[in-house]
Design a protein around this nucleic acid. Structure first.
Length: 483
RNA sequence: CGGGGCGUAGCGCAGCCCGGUAGCGCGCUUCGUUCGGGACGAAGAGGUCGGAGGUUCGAAUCCUCUCGCCCCGACCA
């Protein structure tokens, strides 16, 4: 039993049973609960506040690159979904249908959107006439429904919240540029805001989005050595434009199909955040998105002490408000020790203790969630020290996660080693590769590992035989077992 | 949708095999003492035992059906 285990006795050890640990953390930290319908999720206020912070950050990043928000309907006519062949084939098994309305059978069943490419395509076809109407750069913050066979809170639920961006362009090159730009936005969100290191890369033909020309993803490595796809960006080429007739008259007098893109990131990011940073005491929230960045725990014995402490807490509260730091003063009738454990479990980055001794010294005791380091801080420098410490924690979380990923990334050059690493060490396995769908499936069949992506960063690549097939490799591929 | 497990108080569980009218821990309420790493005492509240049907004098317990959840597989953000 490690040092920190004695602080929290009621959470399953991560190393004993990771998925049990995950479920307990989600529920005990009050992030989410199960809904009454199979596979549905209630996002509780603490979890939703986290989502709002992620939204706020991502939305700001979208706006910086010219994206506007809009809203599209929940219900999609069946005929729309059927327009793009690969798309319908990919999504058909998991679509939920509305067949009755107003007490009557509907003439055409309506799909509860699993994603909005089709209804977007229908609208864009109307909106685009000229090359001057392009590009269209729209994002939707909404919910979608996919009838999943097997669900896990935040990682896979039948209904989930996400954003889906949909753009239309004059040329394929421009669409490709936008696809990669949005992938980069996701990388920045993951790494800078969520402190979650990711590998950017391209999906194989086997793993790409149904109906896409090319799919890119960011892939993160979770605490149990499994990979999580944390965001995707698709270059749809002219596939949807052809199915929905999104055409424009170009400056050369030719009528042409648009090239479109779509890209999405979901509440799954919350699952990723939990599994990236959490420890045996519970959650650890990256400061930039933490619903509560600082929790103030007052400590007192006597009534007159309580009054003085209350006064100090009030003063500190005023300071933090002015400094735009998200905080909460915990005046519940519990012992300080109990509160320490509670807030550690819920992942608040900094605990600020105010007791009689601190009042006397005109200071506060700061305790970091990530390493439990204690630091007495005079109140006059609190407003410079707190933001600094929040940054230090943000940085430390990222570095710890990056170090973990690097330790768990193994380069192998033969299939025997590959199988062993996947089975025992887990993590990312980097191999020489050349596109081969049959080999990919065979490897998946035997080892459960899939190609997470073909990393954009191919530095260090040297020619040699590809894994499994032995054909000349075209680059590195990143394998892992995935969520 | 296949294989396994589980539905008993808000949460975690025992009781079921061998039928006799429901219990433990935590939490909750009130009062008092506590409070710098999950405090203690006393007194309380809380359950149509997932649902339906059957067997029986009597069902949480036995039988049948059904609904739901969790885990492992096949499908996926």
């Amino acid at each position: 039993m490690s040092q920190q285990d004695k602080f929290v006795e009621d959470i399953t050890d991560k190393d004993d049973d990771f998925s049990k640990w995950y479920n307990e953390v989600v529920r005990k930290a009050e992030l989410a609960d199960y809904g009454p319908v199979r596979g549905t999720m209630i996002i509780r206020p603490y979890g939703y506040a986290l989502w709002e912070n992620i939204q706020k950050r991502l939305d700001a990043r979208f706006k910086e690159v010219g994206i506007e928000n809009a809203y599209f309907p929940l219900l999609i006519p069946k005929s729309f979904l059927e327009r793009e062949a690969e798309h319908v084939e990919g999504f058909a098994p998991e679509v939920a249908w509305v067949t009755r309305g107003g007490g009557e059978e509907l003439e055409e069943p309506l799909a509860i959107r699993p994603t909005s490419e089709t209804i977007i395509g229908n609208a864009y076809a109307k909106w685009v006439q000229s090359y001057r109407d392009l590009p269209i750069l729209i994002n939707l913050w909404n919910n979608v429904m996919r009838w999943e066979k097997r669900t896990t809170l935040f990682l896979r639920t039948s209904e989930f919240l996400w954003q889906e961006g949909h753009t239309a362009h004059r040329t394929l090159e421009e669409a490709e540029e936008r696809t990669l730009q949005m992938l980069e936005v996701y990388r920045q969100l993951a790494e800078e805001d969520l402190a979650m290191p990711v590998v950017t890369g391209q999906k194989t033909e086997q793993e790409k989005f149904a109906g896409a020309l090319r799919t890119y993803s960011i892939e993160a490595l979770m605490g149990d050595g499994k990979a999580l796809q944390a965001g995707t960006s698709h270059n749809l080429g002219s596939n949807f434009a052809r199915s929905f007739d999104i055409m424009f008259l170009d400056s050369d007098g030719q009528r042409k199909y648009c090239s479109t893109t779509s890209w999405g990131a979901s509440t799954r990011l919350i699952g990723g955040l939990i599994m990236t940073h959490g420890d045996n005491a519970g959650l650890i929230m990256p400061p930039k998105v933490a619903p509560i960045q600082v929790v103030i725990v007052p400590i007192w014995r006597k009534v007159e002490e309580k009054a003085k402490v209350a006064e100090a807490v009030e003063r500190i509260g005023q300071m933090l408000k002015g400094a735009d730091i998200r905080f909460k003063a915990d005046w519940r009738e519990e012992t300080p020790g109990w509160k320490y454990n509670e807030w550690e479990m819920r992942g608040v980055p900094i605990r600020l203790e105010v007791g009689p001794r601190d009042v006397q010294n005109n200071s506060a005791m700061l305790v970091r969630r990530d390493n439990r380091a204690k630091e007495p801080v005079p109140l006059e420098i609190l407003l410079t020290r707190l933001p600094e410490m929040l940054n230090e924690i943000q940085q430390a979380l990222f570095e710890r996660a990056l170090k973990f990923r690097e330790e768990k990334t193994t380069e192998v050059d033969n299939y025997e080693d590959f199988k062993q690493v996947i089975a025992e060490k887990r993590g990312f396995v980097k191999v020489r590769w050349t596109e081969d769908r049959a080999a990919e499936l065979a490897i998946k069949e035997e080892t459960k590992a899939t190609i997470r992506n073909i990393p954009l960063d191919q530095s260090g690549f040297t020619p040699g035989p590809a894994l499994y097939t032995g054909k000349p490799a075209t680059g590195y591929a990143l394998f892992a077992r995935a969520y």
